[in-house]
């Protein structure tokens, strides 16, 4: 699904990501962990192709095609989707209007889907204006449900969300990643940034990666990595792996 080779990414003239290599196959979900500021969100934004994130070296291949220089919308149309951690507020643009513009679905279909994430009351509101942390996540997941991407990137889907809503979001994310489909038949893939690991209860995550200082330092079982981080913190985890 996604193949990243020797990727170097800079922001504002400073290299943030160094020599990233990552291969996510069809049906796999990977988890990305790491301390704040280590470059996790930068990686997701670079994969999606946002212009602030300048690719200095390396390639991103998606479904076998080199998308390294491809515009954002072309990547979206090819099946990439992203849940933002802090999406922008767009003055005057109603959530419902955006969903209609991007999905071409009819009003009643949009309303029905919005109800499944308790966002039907938000369709006539400016997108993200005054939304709480949980509302932002529900708005993001609703947009992804409309888009139904083959490759789903989620930037801290559980941050700022209460326990009840984590369950709701987790279930929808599980659907997006075809959790209910047998592993051998699963086609959808994901890359999820998480600090808490709550999301692991709702997806079948195959591999975990730890990112430190713009590099992927180690790989392993997501739950084992999380356990180590919880017990010893990132510093020891990193030192341990460097030995």
């Amino acid at each position: 699904m996604l193949e990243i080779s020797d990727l170097h990414v800079e922001v504002g003239g400073k290299e943030i990501l160094h020599d990233i290599n990552l291969n996510i196959r069809d049906g796999e979900t990977h988890v990305l962990m790491g301390p704040n500021g280590s470059g996790k969100s930068t990686l997701l934004m670079a994969i999606m192709g946002f212009s602030t994130f300048n690719i200095r070296e390396g390639t991103i291949r998606f479904k076998g095609e080199d998308v390294t220089q491809m515009p954002v919308h072309e990547r979206a149309l090819r099946g990439m989707g992203i849940m933002f951690q802090r999406p922008p507020t767009i003055s005057g643009l109603k959530l419902g209007k955006l969903l209609a513009a991007t999905s071409k679905k009819k009003e009643d279909e949009i309303l029905a889907l919005a109800r499944t994430v308790n966002m039907d009351q938000f369709l006539s509101r400016d997108i993200n204006r005054g939304f709480s942390g949980g509302e932002i996540k529900r708005s993001e997941i609703l947009q992804l449900m409309m888009q139904n991407p083959d490759f789903v990137m989620l930037d801290e889907p559980e941050s700022g969300v209460d326990l009840e809503n984590i369950h709701l979001l987790g279930a929808r994310i599980g659907n997006l990643l075809e959790k209910e489909v047998q592993i051998v038949n699963r086609k959808k893939s994901g890359l999820i940034i998480t600090h808490t690991g709550y999301i692991l209860d709702y997806v079948d995550a195959n591999i975990g990666h730890v990112m430190c200082d713009g590099e992927i330092k180690c790989h392993g079982s997501p739950r084992e990595i999380l356990k180590e981080i919880k017990e010893r913190g990132y510093k020891e985890c990193l030192e341990c792996r460097q030995k």
Binding site: F50, S51, H73, A76, I82, F84, P87, P88
Partner: peptide, 13 residues
């Protein structure tokens, strides 16, 4: 730019 690309990430040119 961030707003334009946000919408582009949903598939709009």
């Amino acid at each position: 730019r961030e707003e334009i690309e946000y919408l582009m990430s949903r598939g709009l040119d």
